[in-house]
Every structure is written in C-alpha cells, then in structure tokens.
Write a protein that binds this DNA or RNA. Structure first.
Length: 542
RNA sequence: GCCGGGAUAGCUCAGUGGUAGAGCAACGGUUUCGUAAACCGUAGGUCGUGGGUUCGAAUCCCAUUCCCGGCUCCA
C-alpha cells in the first residue's frame, strides 16, 4: 500500500476499534481504503445516526491519542479460525478467511485491544493518523450482492496532514457549485417535473440551444464521414424485440409493454389474470422460437416461453434502443458488397426503466436521446470502421477540451450466460476492439464482464464533480444481431454474406453528455455553445 | 428496488405545539445617482400530499410522492 493508503486503511481499523468500544455487539465485515478515503462495513441492529457518527469520531480520537501500535501476526489457518472465534467476529470474518487461497499467508493486525483479519499494510502507530473525518452512513450489501443482508457502511476520509484534509473538504464544497443539477436550474437549462415523471428531462429553451448546437456540430462530422440520416418511431412491436433478444431478457429494465385495447378486452373477458396477461405478452410463437434458435445455434428461446399463436398478444414497447429499427431499414433493401459500409445515424430517443434509486439529474434518466448510428459492413471493413468511430469520439472530446477520461474495453465474462453468439465471433469482435483501442494513443483497460450482451465495446468514461464515473461515448462490435435478424449482402462471389454491425454513439446520450458538459465547463460555456450570447451592462466613465 | 437523510415564497434558508418569517428574484414607483447588489413600496405560502394525535400541528405519529448520498443495476 502507498503511505496514504496505509493511513486510510489504519483509520478504518481505528474506526472499527471505536465502534466496538461503543457497540460491542457489532459484527464487522470489511474496511478497505478507497480512492478518496476509507470505509468499514458493519452489521449492527441499531441504526446509526449523525449523532452516533460524531460519537464514533470522538472515540476514534481517543484511540489515536492512546498511540497504539499496529502489530502484524501471521498464523496457520486453524489458528486463524480460533482467533476469529475467540474475538467473536464469526459472522463475516470466517467467510473472509475462506476467501484466502490455500498457501497464501494469513495475517492479523492488532492495535490495542482490536484484532482484525487483514493483509495489511498499516502505519506503525495510531498517532500517525493525523487528519481524518467521518463523512456519511450508507447501506451496502455484504459482498455486493443484493440478495445478501444489507450492512451499514461508514464512510470517512483521511490525509497525511490537516491542511490536505481541509483542502479536500473545501474542494468537495466547491465541486457542489458545479453540480449540473444546481447549474441546470440556475442557468435554466432543463427541468424535471414530478408530474411528467422521474428521470424524464424537459429541455428548456436555454438547454435546447446547447443541445441543438452539439447536434449540429456532430451532424457536420457525420456528413464528412459518409453517414445517412434516418428517423424511426419511439415504439415497436414486441415481436421485434423478441427477435433481437432484448425482450424478455431485459424486461425488468424496460417500461411495461403496451397491449392494444382489443387484445386487453379479450384477455379480460376470458378472465385472464395479470400474470397470465404478462405471460401472453412475453410468450413467443413456436415458429419464431425455432427460427431464432436455429440462427443463434442454441436454445436462445427456451420451451417454457413458447406459447400457441392464438394465446400470444403482440403488444408494443417503448424502444429501449434503436438497433432493431435501423436493422429493419438496412434489411428493407438488398445490398451489394459495393454498398457497404452502410452507416445509418439518428438522434434516437430510447426509454429504459431504471430503478428509482439509480436516477440522477441528467446523467441517469429513464428517457434519453442517443446520438446513435449503426454501421453495416463486411468483416474486412470492421477494423477501419471502428477506427473511424473512435476518431469521431476523439474529435468530440478534443473539441470540448475534455481530457480527463479513461477508456474501457468491455469484454465478455467467461462465466455469464447472458451473452448471445458463438465463441468464435466473440473472439473476433474482442480482438477488433482491442486492436482499435491500441491505436487510440491513450491508456485503456480491458474489463471482463463489461460487454453488451451482443458484443464487446470500447467505452469512454468520464467523472462527474463528485467523482462518480459515467460512460459517455461508446463503440460496440456486434456479430450477433445480424444473425438474429438474418441480415445479408451479396458478395463479389454473388453469394449472400453476413454483415457485421457496429453500434456507436460519440456523445453517448444528449442528456448525460450535457450533464457532464455543464460540470466540465462549470456552466461557463464557450461562445458557440452558450445559450446566452450577449448581455448588455450599463457602465459609467468613472 | 434496498439503507440513511431531506421537502417551508420563484431561489437560498430561519422557524421544536399557540396569529407563517428574512434576504435575493418578481412587480410598482423614485433616481440617472449608483456599477464587488441605487432608494422606497407591493405582491407572493392550504409549510410535498393524505390520514391521525391535540382545544390548537410547519412542528408529534402513520402512510405516500419526490429529491439527495450510498448499495445494487446500467442492453
């Protein structure tokens, strides 16, 4: 650990020491350092309050004053179990002990009366924790799994000196002044209305100027790169999404389907329960199931979802993404290899049922407009087209002076069943992304488990004023949806070939991008974006 | 969705059981002085919503909606 991490990690042990002195019945889980401080997850029936936080902080100061030394002790596994039993921290610590692979050192750290299973490292004496502050109490799930018990997490921060701590706290305060939700109100950029709905952005005249300018700017770049503009409706039939695979896999994050009145009436008169109605909307006819399963080469649609045709209600859905609509435009005409790549672009508005607790200003919403495009190309063209897309993202970020971002190559995680498509195509797509990312000239990380269900992707991730990360621009390679929709083009050999699709959105979504942009400029936009271009002030000679 | 905190005038906030307040903004007037907030005045609120306790509720209790922080999630 770095010296700062040691201070923070030690502070979290002091925190645990203080908590056990105040509430001896507490069961401890883990307390690591973080990028900005530290926390400790605890299981305690008593709900901690702000006053408790102050009391814990006072108790921590006592512990620090006692200037306890941190002592490391390595023990065999059997003895570790014994120690955990003896200190009565069995509920979580035994599980944490099991996580340590056989053959690796098992160590405990002791300061004063407090002993904790811990790999270290720590400062030598508690007095070396010179500046700390407890910040907040939050809920967190044991092992990050919402099926597990929810624990109380106490967040704090610590620095090497009081000045640095004060500077950090001041910086936090100042950051709040740049919050896009605050500036959005002050500068009259957008409004969210309770009666319209959570997470639904109303773009006011000022905000609309900002958005329109950004759209004009990217529109110009799209013309240069040979895109075609298209427009598609906000809804589509459920069948469309059953074919694409979005429904019902993502039904929990979609708005409920819209059933037409006649089908609803019919279902009601035959005494259909709500559950039955949902089943009928979600069901797939045998013919479609067979078709999809054949194309994807596996049991994508399981037999339990297959219903007789006359039972199925084919309602509509607010579109959660634009791909199926663009695919249908591509598929509406035969294509020669000479036509490719076909690049279809649209500012497409999509709707997703995000959980209420996840909504956040403009950065996480339920209805948003992607600066979307889908590129249909030959396999040979994939690499070049991905590079073109990345170029577009770079132009956007460079034009707006956004330099503080990271690039993430999202790969499939080996153990998850949520992905569609063959291993061979995944390998090809992942390789294409990896190679494209290498040409970016900026460092990137490869992250298994971050892929979309249909393919790997390259994401541009940016932080907001309080350090939360938001994915903006994205480029995704997709070998799967072309199979699902049986897309083809005629090759030089006069035979049908499968195109590859690239999904890309340089801004990501207009809502999120504007939210981040407001914070980036602290509301002080460059003139070409500024909604208020001129203000006349009376000035005297004196 | 879960844990915790919150909601009083357009905005920022004060008000812990006894007649709803301040500053800024708005509006009217005065002034052309002022320019890192000119002066005087006016209007603006069923205290998020619905129940309950009480002689009496912004204040106490319950429910609910929305917001904030975190967790989970993010095609």
């Amino acid at each position: 650990m770095t010296p700062l991490e040691e201070i923070r990690h030690s502070a979290s042990h002091v925190l645990a020491t203080a908590i056990l002195r105040l509430f001896p019945e507490t069961q401890l889980d883990i307390g690591p350092p973080t990028e900005t401080g530290f926390y400790y997850d605890i299981d305690l029936d008593r709900k901690l309050t702000a006053e408790d936080l102050a009391a814990i902080e006072a108790k921590m100061k006592e512990v620090i004053e006692e200037n306890q030394s941190f002592q490391r002790r390595e023990v065999p596994r059997a003895e570790a179990v014994e120690i955990i039993n003896k200190i009565g921290q069995t509920r979580y610590k035994l599980g944490r002990l099991d996580d340590i692979p056989e053959g690796e050192a098992i160590s405990f750290y002791q300061n004063g009366e407090f002993i904790d299973l811990c790999a270290g490292t720590h400062v030598r004496y508690t007095k070396q924790i010179k500046a700390f502050k407890l910040l907040s109490i939050a809920g967190s799930y044991h092992r990050g799994d919402e099926k597990n018990k929810q624990l109380q997490r106490i967040y704090g921060t610590a620095f090497a000196s009081k000045d640095e701590l004060a500077a950090y706290l001041t910086q936090l305060e100042q950051a709040k002044a740049r919050d896009h939700r605050k500036l959005g109100k002050e500068l009259k950029l957008f409004h969210i209305d309770e009666d319209v709905g959570q997470g639904l952005i109303l773009w006011t005249p000022n905000g609309s100027i900002l958005r329109q300018e950004l759209q004009n700017f990217i529109g110009e770049e799209l013309r240069k790169q040979g895109y075609h503009q298209v427009f598609t409706p906000h809804i589509g039939k459920l069948t469309l999404y059953k074919t694409s695979g979005h429904f019902p896999y993502y039904k929990d994050s979609q708005f409920a389907p819209i059933a037409d009145r006649e089908a609803l009436d019919q279902a009601c008169t035959c005494g259909c329960s709500c559950a039955e109605l949902m089943n009928r909307l979600e069901g797939v006819p045998a013919a479609l199931a067979a078709q999809v399963n054949e194309r994807t080469g596996k049991e994508t649609i399981t037999p339990d979802r297959v219903l007789p045709d006359d039972k199925i209600i084919d309602g509509f859905m607010l579109k959660p993404m634009n791909c199926p609509h663009h695919i249908k435009i591509f598929a509406s005409q035969p294509h020669s290899y000479r036509d490719l790549p076909v690049r279809l672009a649209e500012f497409g508005t999509v709707y997703r049922w995000e959980q209420s607790g996840e909504l956040n200003g403009m950065t996480r919403v339920r209805g948003f407009t992607q600066d979307d495009a889908h590129l249909f190309c030959t396999e040979d063209q994939v690499a070049g087209e991905v590079l073109g897309c990345l170029e577009l993202v770079k132009i956007v970020l460079a034009t707006l002076g956004m330099k503080d971002y990271r690039v993430r190559v999202g790969l499939r995680s080996p153990d998850s069943a949520k992905y569609t498509g063959t291993d061979e195509n995944w390998a090809k797509a992942e390789e294409a992304c990896r190679n494209a990312a290498k040409t970016l000239g900026v460092p990137f990380t490869e992250e298994p488990g971050e892929a979309a269900f249909y393919g790997p992707k390259i994401d541009f991730v940016i932080k907001d004023v309080i350090g939360r990360e938001w994915q903006l621009g994205t480029v995704q390679v997709d070998y799967n949806l072309p199979i699902r929709f049986d897309l083809s083009y005629v090759g030089p050999d006069n035979k049908p070939h499968r195109p590859v699709m690239i999904h890309r959105a340089p801004f990501g979504s207009m809502e999120r991008f504007c939210g981040v942009l407001i914070e980036h400029f602290a509301g002080d936009f460059p003139v070409w974006l500024a909604p208020e271009q001129v203000r006349i002030l009376p000035i005297s000679d004196k």
